[in-house]
């Protein structure tokens, strides 16, 4: 073994002398943008979308396929607004705000499009576990009965629930094809690409390759798809089982933020508890380490708490 100096032994001091305060380089943004939303001027930072401008103006814009941690795909079209000079309505979630734009968010045209989108979805899908969508339906007076889906006159996405593993349940009759799970599984987070949209038109659906069961696919059970699903089409099996047993009660649940007990990355876990047991683990979207994402251990590895499988009767 060669002999070489070690910095700590002789000094016996704190190893890191105080130095200059490190900082992040400034990546200069452009000048702010001023536009008109519902008759009022709004100024937003460069790079903002119309959705940002709307929320700055205090307008609550409905969104389904939008999530701040994912690239906007603007496919659900429930966030459309009227933009002066544009032949069609434009999606607020992805349209960059530009100087001098004039935007209406509650015109007759906007309300009709939003209502129709909600009717289209609710006449095609089971929306029972999609509280946001239900709330929007009420807000815009959507009536799915106009299409006859109840009495078999309209095509729907009704299909059996897929339960092919111990962790996930996939009920695609609830899937509104918002692409969020595909994005979370893909370049926006997990980069596993276990699922994609397959087929075309109304037959489009979320699928593994050749629709093989999840255990045969590339899925690594990070649960990030479940974390972003807006309709409950993707659900943790633990939640699904509790719901089936009639024991799931969100009004009785509390959440606590803590740190994942596994590797040293320091992911914030939000533990959802009900009757002193953990029923679900998520992560906050605005957390700089996770952006809401976890791995299989963080997502499901909490089951040892309370003594593990065998000892859980004690908890």
């Amino acid at each position: 073994m060669s002999d070489y100096p070690t910095p700590d032994a002789p000094s016996l001091t704190i190893p890191v002398p105080r130095g200059p305060l490190p900082s992040t380089p400034d990546r200069g943004a452009g000048p702010p943008v001023t536009l008109e939303v519902d008759g009022e001027a709004v100024t937003v930072p460069a790079g903002s979308t119309l959705l940002d401008a709307c929320s700055k103006r205090g307008v609550d814009t409905p969104t389904l396929c939008y999530l701040e941690t994912l690239s906007p795909v603007n496919v659900c079209r429930v966030c459309v607004v009227e933009l002066e000079g544009s032949r069609t309505l434009v999606p607020a979630c992805s349209r960059p705000a530009a100087e001098g734009m004039v935007v209406s968010t509650d015109s007759e045209r906007v309300r009709l499009s939003r209502r129709m989108v909600l009717e289209f979805l609710s006449s095609s899908n089971d929306v029972e576990t999609a509280p946001e969508l239900q709330e929007y339906m009420e807000r815009y007076g959507a009536d799915p009965e106009r299409y006859g889906s109840r009495n078999g006159q309209a095509a729907t996405q009704a299909q059996p629930t897929k339960i092919d593993n111990e962790l996930y349940v996939r009920d695609y009759s609830k899937c509104i094809l918002c692409y969020k799970c595909v994005e979370a599984c893909g370049v926006d987070a997990q980069n596993t690409f276990a699922i994609a949209v397959a087929g075309r038109g109304f037959e489009s659906h979320i699928a593994t390759e050749f629709d093989v069961p999840l255990p045969d696919s590339a899925c690594v059970y990070c649960g990030n798809c479940i974390g972003v699903c807006p309709t409950g089409a993707l659900m943790f099996k633990s939640e699904h089982d509790l719901r089936n047993a009639g024991e799931w009660d969100e009004s009785q649940q509390e959440t606590t933020d803590t740190i994942c007990p596994y590797c040293g990355v320091g992911c914030t876990l939000t533990l959802h508890t009900q009757d002193n047991r953990i029923v679900k683990a998520t992560s906050p979207l605005d957390q700089e380490v996770t952006s809401g994402n976890l791995c299989i251990k963080g997502r499901f590895g909490w089951q040892f708490v309370g003594g593990g499988k065998s000892g859980s009767s004690g908890s």
Binding site: V75, L121, Y147, G199, R200, F202, S204
Partner: peptide
């Protein structure tokens, strides 16, 4: 149009079906 809609956006994916029906 029902057959050829790519299926990406809701108005066209479902609208072409509802129109046909």
């Amino acid at each position: 149009f029902r057959e050829e809609s790519c299926g990406q956006c809701v108005p066209c994916r479902v609208g072409t079906v509802r129109q046909d029906e």
